[in-house]
Design a protein around this nucleic acid. Structure first.
Length: 272
DNA sequence: GACCCGATTGTCT
DNA sequence: GACAATCGGGTCA
């Protein structure tokens, strides 16, 4: 396993290109500002991909999630994940990295061989259902069920857009570090468990519906990256699963400094 | 009931 | 690059 992990490339140290600077992108409304209507309170009017009551608080509906894991993993890129805390604070982040898990045939998936247990039930529920699980006894990973039995998409990294200070506070308090240096913006959501900490996502979100839940939802972002702007690479942290460890089922936005692990080789084969 | 290990992260060398 | 932290769930007896 270690030898396979060793193949992963490290995040490059280069500074963030301007176009990805969070300051240059949307500033989310401060918690003090009047909030939009509850996103879950959707009227009957629905478009193909999202609902927009009164043209406000647009969220992606269940139709968006009802596609196979690979296209869904790609479609997630560029969309904005929003988490509303109990006090009304909105945390926002643009999805920049995902992984697809294909279901029973995928040897690296928790649903491999058709295994269905109380833990991974969310993977088998309707598209848009969250599958949140505890890993290494202390971290959470957040997946979204896709079309296909036992198939889902793992959210691996976000570009923080709003509520950065709340994220920093959550990350600081949830991790067990002695030294409490301030975390850089790049450290807030650049990993599957980091983003769960930053957005206060835990086991209580397991099996919730991303298309309906009041505390977490997905909004359409700017036009997502297309074609060669998306890098397809091997998934991270997959061990002895043979060919399945090498399949290019991880997708990330080329050039984004918010990605957790950059794979230079994969970037070459996915020519810009 | 015992045992093993993980879709990770952070720290230290 | 190595390695510890930490525990629920899967597997097998």
């Amino acid at each position: 396993q270690l030898s396979q992990r060793r193949g992963q490339k490290k995040q490059r140290p280069a500074e963030a290109e301007q176009q990805w600077s969070p300051a240059a992108v949307a500033q989310s409304p401060s918690p003090k500002e009047p909030r939009l209507g509850a996103p879950a309170a959707l009227g009957p009017q629905c478009s193909i991909y999202f609902s927009s009551p009164k043209g406000q608080s647009v969220r992606l509906g269940s139709e968006f999630f009802d596609q196979p894991a690979v296209p869904l993993a790609r479609a997630f890129l560029g969309q904005v994940l929003v988490r509303q805390l109990a006090d009304g604070t909105e945390l926002r982040g643009r999805v920049v990295e995902t992984e697809a898990y294909l279901g029973p045939e995928d040897e690296a998936a928790h649903s491999r061989g058709g295994r269905q247990t109380p833990r991974n039930r969310g993977m088998f529920m309707k598209p848009g259902t969250l599958y949140v699980y505890l890993i290494y006894g202390m971290y959470f990973c957040m997946n979204v069920s896709s079309r296909g039995d036992g198939a889902c998409v793992l959210l691996r990294a976000l570009e923080p857009l709003g509520g950065l200070e709340a994220m920093r506070q959550l990350r600081k308090s949830l991790r067990k570090s002695t030294a409490s240096r301030a975390l850089k913006d790049r450290e807030l959501c650049s990993g599957p468990s980091k983003l769960c900490q930053a957005l206060a996502i835990d086991k209580s979100f397991d099996q919730r519906d991303l298309a309906q839940d009041e505390a977490v939802w997905l909004e359409p972002g700017s036009p997502g990256p297309r074609g060669s702007a998306v890098v397809a690479a091997a998934r991270v942290g997959i061990g002895n699963t043979g060919e399945w460890a090498r399949k290019p089922l991880r997708f990330y936005v080329r050039g984004s400094p918010w990605v957790s692990v950059v794979d230079r080789e994969a970037e070459k084969s996915t020519q810009a």
